[in-house]
Design a protein around this nucleic acid. Structure first.
Lengths: 211, 211
DNA sequence: TTCTATCCAGAACAGATGTCCCAACCGCAC
DNA sequence: GTGCGGTTGGGACATCTGTTCTGGATAGAA
């Protein structure tokens, strides 16, 4: 699906984006023709077919302006955040893979970049249960994570404890060969684990709760 | 510019919104005709002219699907949420007024309607201090509130305690002449206050935290 | 060379689509 | 009643627009 695009195809795609940014609707075939200096509508039609085959857009037949961009549909200033799964004690966090991201059943939520601080590839997990209460995270909350395997000290991370088969959200401190996981709630005791027994899956960049 | 709209005009506006939520482009005159059970395209045309005159949308002449919605420049599926002020113990919550909303210095954050559940006039307050810890709300969190003065029992509300000159986020229960404010954290004791000593300013619809 | 796949050019067709015209209807003031 | 502004119905027209057809150009493989 990721065949490379000809310059003309890239130009068409760029023009569609520009056009939709300016208007609230996609261009017609002839808009594209004029905007990209193409001599015939059939050329536009042909390249749109290619772009559709390559998965860059979707066309609705017989419908004027029936073009829908598929590159995440991401408008400027927004990112599409996939809600990969739920986390609960005893269930490992899945690694975001391309197949998983293409799953059409995947819940998706569009968030302004202000909430993700411009981070790339942010994904979300829905919290089940009350095991994260010590981090002010309640049942049903959505945790936004940035994929990070080697966090810095002091980062709030989602960590998979291999021995306990448990996932927790804690502050991460690497001290020699052991990892200290410090709850956000100072009333609770930190956990110290050998470094090889901890698999960090992501750094927490935000929490969203709706009621 | 705020003449009242006929039911048909409201229906057309709602249909356009629904259509643009579903597709990435506006409907044609005939789409509207079918979607709103209108017998003639001329009626659609007429009402679109009215909607344009009233400032609800803009039409591009001679352009198919040349309809642009003008509701506040907000893209479909998103709302502009003003961050009115910070809340902390001892500081009253301001009432969102028109002048306040027009303040150019106002911080604004664009959120998807999925986070506000389509509620209107949602505003946000930034939490200072740790007085809301019992509701899993930490220092620096953004609380999304829907303006409500008379909440239902069980709602999580922002309440201004007149005697204590204090603001808290608690679950609201009206029991006769007194109001019971139940912390979200069951380990903490509820507060009971005479109803006239409590001023509810809003119902909590969401919490957002960035780190 | 020949064949094939890709891409382009020009033109035309059929259906989609915005617009306009005219008549009719309705509520309301006079 | 009459008149009038707002609204609706029905239809037609000109244009817009997606699609298709024919032909050709180019490049690489057989």
């Amino acid at each position: 699906m990721k065949g490379k695009l000809s310059p003309r195809q890239q130009g068409i795609l760029a023009f569609i984006r520009r056009f939709m940014d300016e208007h609230q609707f996609p261009p017609t075939v002839r808009d594209i023709q004029a905007g990209c200096d193409i001599s015939s509508t059939s050329v536009v039609d042909y390249n749109l077919q290619v772009l559709q085959r390559e998965g860059n857009l979707r066309r609705l037949p017989e419908v004027s302006r029936g073009i829908e961009l598929l590159d995440g549909g991401a408008r400027r200033g927004f990112v599409n955040v996939p809600v990969l799964a739920s986390i609960a004690a005893g269930v490992p966090i899945p690694v975001p893979s391309q197949e998983a991201l293409d799953d059409p059943n995947l819940e998706n939520i569009e968030l302004p970049t202000s909430l993700t601080q411009g981070k790339e590839n942010v994904f979300a997990l829905r919290v089940k249960g009350t095991s994260m209460i010590d981090a002010f995270i309640a049942d049903g909350d959505l945790v936004l994570l940035e994929p990070v395997v080697h966090p810095d000290n002091g980062d709030m991370v989602a960590a998979w404890l291999l021995d306990d088969e448990e996932v927790t959200l804690k502050r991460f401190y690497l001290e020699g060969d052991t990892v200290r996981l410090q709850p956000a709630n100072s009333a609770m005791e930190p956990i110290s684990v050998p470094a090889e027994k901890v698999a960090v899956r992501g750094r927490v960049v935000g929490v969203v709760r709706t009621m």
